[in-house]
Each structure stands twice: as structure tokens, then as C-alpha cells.
Amino acid sequence: MSWTSLIDHAIGHYNYWVCVVLMMLGFYIVIASGNLIKKIIGLNLFQTAVIMFYISMGKIDGGTAPILVDPEKVSGPVVYTNPLPSVLMLTAIVVGVATSALGLALVVRIKEAYGSIEEDEILAADRASDAKEQAQYAASAAQAAKTEAAQQGHA
């Protein structure tokens, strides 16, 4: 493989590589960040990487936007870029903002319920309330056992 063909390969695949990098950045934010809003932003990053990937694949060299032009106005055949990725991704963007709005609404409710949007604080609060409930349950169970024993002793 000569140098020029290697460079050609790199230029021809640069878009896809950047898309992979963007997607992995989004993925990393989603799993490594503890902040819920940052997680949603990471999810958006992931989504736009996919969109960018599709659109990159649809592009044809020397093509034009997929809007039919009057054949009398141009000389020679017209190359149109693939319209299908555009159609799929256009709706995906709008659906994406609607779903991320849903995620943000959940974040707002979590903030109202827990007073925090940091994952570890929420988990700690959950664990604390779980432990409290268990302690209460154990206490009430012990109380019930005691009264039962007392009743049996009475009988």
C-alpha cells in the first residue's frame, strides 16, 4: 500500500472516524458522568453522531441536494445525493428533541424529589431511606412477635 493510497483512504474515511469518536465521547459521558443533565447531553451527542454517519454515507461526489431541477435549465445529467438518509434522519432529529425533553422532565422531577441531580447522591438517599424502612419494618415485626407471644402466654 503506497503512501498516497493510504492518505486517500484516510480522507475517504475521516468522516466515519470522527463519527465513531463523537459516538464514543457521547457513550463515555453517558456511562462515566454522574450528573443526569450531562448524561442527557451525552445521549444527544451519541444521537447526532449516528445522524452524521448516515448523512455522510448518503453523500455522492459531485452530487447536488435531492430537489429535482428542471432538465431544460441544465446541461447534462444531474447527480442527486441520496435522499433516503435525509428522510430518516430529519424525523429522527425532531423525535430526538421530544424524547430528550422527556428525559429532562424526569430530571426535573428527580430534582424535586431528591434535591439533587447527581447519581451517587440520589443512590445514597435511596439507600438511606431503604435502610430506614427496613429498620422500621424490623421494629414493627419484633413488636408484633412480642404481642403475639404475650397473647399466647395469656391463653
Binding site: 448523512i55 441536494a65 435525509s86 434522519m89 430529519l90 425532531v94
Partner: peptide, 9 residues
């Protein structure tokens, strides 16, 4: 990349 509708959105 010629995806004008997507760009708009």
C-alpha cells in the same frame, strides 16, 4: 453534505 432539509431541522 447536500442534506439541506436535515440542516434546516
Amino acid at each position: 453534505l447536500d442534506a439541506v432539509d436535515v440542516a434546516f431541522t
